[in-house]
Amino acid sequence: MLSIKNLHVSIEGKDILKGINLDVKPGEVHAIMGPNGAGKSTLASVLAGRDLYNVTEGEVLFQGKDLLDMEPEDRAKEGIFLGFQYPIEIPGVSTVNFMKTAVNEHRKYKGLDPLSASDFLKLMREKKSLVEIDSKLTNRSVNEGFSGGEKKKNEIFQMAMLEPKLAVLDETDSGLDIDALRVVANGVNKLKTRDNATIVITHYQRLLDYIVPDVVHVLYDGRIVKTAGKELALELEEKGYDWIKEENGK
C-alpha cells in the first residue's frame, strides 16, 4: 500500500530525513517511535504533502501511485489521513462546514453525489458517537479554544468521517487522559479493516496496549535504525533511547 524508498528530506538546507525505507501493507499497524527531533513529524508531514519540506532524494508510492507528485488535497482523497501532532485552530470556519466540504470533496473524487443535509448530519452523529465527542465541540469553529485532548479527539473524529486507507497518527495519544486515550484507541480500532492501514507515531507504550502494532520502528536522526515486533516498544519503555544512540555511534 505504502512504499517509501530511500527518502531524503531537508528543510532550509538542513537534512532531516536521511534515507527512510518503509513498507506498509493493507491491514497492518506500524508504530514509529524515536526521540524528540528524530524526524517523525517531518515524515508524517511529507507524506501528507506539506510543501515546507524539500524532498531531495527517494520515492514514495501509495497504491502504486507517485505520492510526492500529488497535491495535499489529492493525497487526502486518495486515502491518506494525517492526524496532526498539533492540530490547527481555524477561527471562523465552522467544524460542520469544514467537514461537509471535505466529505463532499472526497465523494466527488469517487464520482459520488454530495450528501444531502440530512444524510450528512446523520453521518456526523454516527461518527461523533464513535469517538464520544461532544456536539458542543463540533458546533464550534475548527479546534478553536479546544483543549489539547479535545483537539486530538477531533482528529480521530475527522478520520472517522473521512475513512482513510492509510492513517498517520502523529502523537495522537499525547495530552490525552486515560479515558480519552481509551476512547481514541477504540475509535481507531473500530475503524480498522483488512484493507486499511495505520501508522502510529508515539512516545508511549501505553497507546500500543490498545492499538497493537504489527511492527515497531525506531526513527533516529533521520533514519529507521531498528524494526521489530511489538516487544520493541516495551524494551524502549524500559531502557530509553540511550542504547539506540550508542548503537548508532552517538
Binding site: E73, I88, A102, V142
Partner: peptide, 13 residues
C-alpha cells in the same frame, strides 16, 4: 498552517 490543515482533509487549495 491553516491552509495546509484544510487541504490535508481533501479540500482543494
Amino acid at each position: 498552517d491553516a491552509l495546509f490543515y484544510l487541504r490535508a482533509r481533501g479540500i482543494d487549495e
